[in-house]
Design a protein around this nucleic acid. Sequence first.
DNA 1: TCTTTTTCTGACCGATCGTGCAGAAATACC
DNA 2: GGTATTTCTGCACGATCGGTCAGAAAAAGA
Lengths: 221, 221
Amino acid sequence: MVDVKSDVNKTTRGIQSRNREEVTARILAAAEKVFAEFGYAGASISRIAASAGIPKSNVVYYFETKEALYRRVVGEIFDIWRAAADSISEDNDPIHALGEYIDTKLDLARTRPYGSKVWANEIIQRAPIVQDYLEDELRSWTENRIAVIEAWIRKGQIRPISARHLLYAIWATTQHYADFTHQITTLNDGVELTDAQWGDTKSAVKDLLLCGVALPGRNRI
Amino acid sequence: MVDVKSDVNKTTRGIQSRNREEVTARILAAAEKVFAEFGYAGASISRIAASAGIPKSNVVYYFETKEALYRRVVGEIFDIWRAAADSISEDNDPIHALGEYIDTKLDLARTRPYGSKVWANEIIQRAPIVQDYLEDELRSWTENRIAVIEAWIRKGQIRPISARHLLYAIWATTQHYADFTHQITTLNDGVELTDAQWGDTKSAVKDLLLCGVALPGRNRI
DNA sequence: TCTTTTTCTGACCGATCGTGCAGAAATACC
DNA sequence: GGTATTTCTGCACGATCGGTCAGAAAAAGA
């Protein structure tokens, strides 16, 4: 993903390369938003360009095709989500690790809602563009996380729940607060959730989901 | 929604009216599928028509505009979901009622996945077409269900969880199995869930979600 | 300074979109 | 039978789409 030809770079990087990164980042941010709000088919290159404040041809210059730009957007959120699950490791305390994972994913739901929506749209439409991500990376990544949870179960650290469905439930609930933001806002009298309400959300989601995970008799989460 | 001019209908209904209903139903079914798979912008009338096996002009004849057809599709799934929550009533046993609600919504996730996807797409894109549904019907409907759950809490029948976030969690998890079918199938080695796996899903979702609802010391769900 | 490379942009192409419309075909009514 | 109404369909329209391309503008390299 990173530029390769930065061999003789001392301190200066040149006006061109700096501006290239700036423009590229602005296009990616605009594309993430427009793809989320209009779907792949409804997001026209000219609308993305207008949102980024540059001519349509310039977007094509940097990303060649609409599909290539789209893949970059989807890849970004995929990488971010993957990193968010670093806490799910066999050596960590299960309840604490899962709680951290839920917290991080809810933070991402608030800070990067557009990326989540793009992913949701892509999966709903049966991943016509990024099916290789699912088969090459998501599948093995998921199996690894399931193995960790099942190790916790074997060691008697959590209740013997279905690791796979627990993962799905965490994904579903956390991403719901990103993908269905508009519905949640409407049901909140049309105003966005406050900091305090996001705090309540974190507590409520962890309380609901982790109660079924923790061993009976343990302290509340 | 129902035809009004059926005044002198004895037994026969005429070839025209019967065929009108048949064609209308076939268009609606095709539209639900195409809107789900391509999004509102990506779903062209000609594709819907081809999927229904009739000319494009005939679709326009029955539904006037693409937007009107879309509203009919969204309205159908909205009504179905609303009826699925009939069990959430103050007189019913909470755990049993919520379990029934989860079961019914998971059944709908399996039998009507396209409708769920259309709804998800619409909300992700901030309800440009059906915002009035959200404000006029969904809002009051949701408040009523929250009131029932809070009544259960006041009577000491369930733990004092957040009724609103419990509802959101149920929506998120159940609809996840419809909207993200393709991801779940890919993670299931590319084959659709079997009857047994759907049964496991129901048990796992109810186990995870209702454990946080049931009073401590109660029997397992 | 002059050349080369990178960056940027407007004009344009063929395809597809939603929709309007005239008229054919089928059915209903008397 | 004939007339009226409903149902159906091919065609045409303006608009917008993704993408190409020639060439201007800017920066880099010498």
